[in-house]
Design a binder for these strands. Sequence first.
DNA 1: AGGGTTGTTCGATCGGGGTCGTACGATGGG
DNA 2: CCCATCGTACGACCCCGATCGAACAACCCT
Lengths: 132, 132
Amino acid sequence: MGVFPFATSLEVTVARPRAVPRRVENPGPEEYSLQGVLEALADPVRRTLVAQLSRADEDMRCGTFDVRVSASTLTHHFTVLREAGVIRQYYVGTSKMNALRDADMEARFPGLLQALLAAEERERDAVVAPAR
Amino acid sequence: MGVFPFATSLEVTVARPRAVPRRVENPGPEEYSLQGVLEALADPVRRTLVAQLSRADEDMRCGTFDVRVSASTLTHHFTVLREAGVIRQYYVGTSKMNALRDADMEARFPGLLQALLAAEERERDAVVAPAR
DNA sequence: AGGGTTGTTCGATCGGGGTCGTACGATGGG
DNA sequence: CCCATCGTACGACCCCGATCGAACAACCCT
């Protein structure tokens, strides 16, 4: 892909070129499938990502997730989640933000994500809080 | 669910000694995990099996499922579903019956199986009944 | 400008799982 | 008894996906 054809004289001796923020192609609700969602959520790493995102209750940067895989692997997992429609991604400067698309999921697969997250949390609690 | 209660005293005076019916080891509810269930249901073939079982609303013999895989592959899929706790299997003569463990699933992962089956049915309907 | 932070891309590896065919075992009916 | 039916066991194949390291690219800040 070509770089920028310097748009003539336009801008700008500004220190901040700013330009157009990098765009991420997030699929529309009509593009994802149950198969894709289940494949995405069948992986334990991706499930922890989603769980952390849900627990945080706000969008999270890629780097702030607590998971023990390499950066490149992490990128892969986020891509899978995004293409499945589970999360939405967008750039903020050099950071990439991740948002849980829980409303879209709920609309398309009612109850599924909620049940899944609830189950995930219950298993997590069982581990965190040992049998007494 | 369980069609026959197997009330022990059944012992018919059949000509055939009958012996002990072949036993199948079905895991207890404490043995299965969310991971196992999701892995099991992430496969499209297994999901159709479960969907057919749910739709039939009664236990089904292995051979009566409508799926285009070989017999040995089918055995494999049923094994995965059973070990995940999604179905229960038991022998009846030379046939093997399959029962959906929806109550156990509901107890352990509330709403999950139902949401999944509902989503599966909706996608199926969308295919069967084309866009008008 | 640099430089550091953040994330991506690419290629390689490697293990797991879905698939099948064939041979086998168990059961029930003639 | 023998045979047809139903499902299993085993090995082979093969593709896909999770993983990593290294090199690169975009951005922000000083």
